[in-house]
């Protein structure tokens, strides 16, 4: 697992949008050897960081789907054709940048969980809190 990187991102001040941070913190406590990063947004600088790892897993909240739904899929850097905004990059775009600029792109997955509440709060909704064990289990499969 030492070659794996976990990136949880979102806004922890907006309810379930902070679930990426929560999951990242939980797994960091469970696996001290795992490298974990939390960010509000993905930025181009992360391309250099992820180029040092064999695997990277991004964890984010989404508003799409039923609250509590967990979806994971492999990222395809070749699917990236458009722009990357300077401080709001796409996970697949970061993999593409890492490969192009540093010659090393890890295999990448993104795990999303559908949020229920994105209000001004620092706690997760009961629905999302209830499925955190499943979310962590899914991430563990990918970083193992």
């Amino acid at each position: 697992m030492s070659r794996a990187l976990l990136i949880g991102y979102g806004n922890p001040l907006r309810g379930d949008d902070g679930v990426g941070w929560t999951a990242a913190d939980m797994l960091a406590a469970r696996y001290p050897e795992l490298t974990v990063i939390t960010r509000h947004q993905l930025t181009p600088e992360l391309a250099e960081t992820i180029s040092h790892f064999a695997r990277v897993v991004f964890v984010d909240a989404t508003a799409v789907g039923q609250p509590g739904d967990i979806v994971a899929h492999r990222l395809d850097p070749e699917s990236v054709t458009g722009d990357l905004y300077s401080h709001n990059c796409d996970p697949a775009g970061l993999l593409k940048m890492a490969g192009f600029l540093y010659g090393r792109a890890p295999t990448g997955h993104i795990v999303t969980i559908t949020g229920e509440s994105f209000g001004y709060e620092e706690t997760l909704s009961p629905t999302v809190t209830a499925v955190l064990p499943q979310l962590c289990a899914k991430i563990e499969q990918l970083i193992a």
Partner: peptide, 22 residues
């Protein structure tokens, strides 16, 4: 005309930008 265009044309410039911001 976006960041991928820059890194394809001048990868060293893109790397310098990333490194300086870091």
């Amino acid at each position: 005309r976006h960041i991928f265009g820059v890194l394809q044309a001048y990868p060293e410039l893109a790397r310098d930008g990333i490194a300086l911001r870091q």
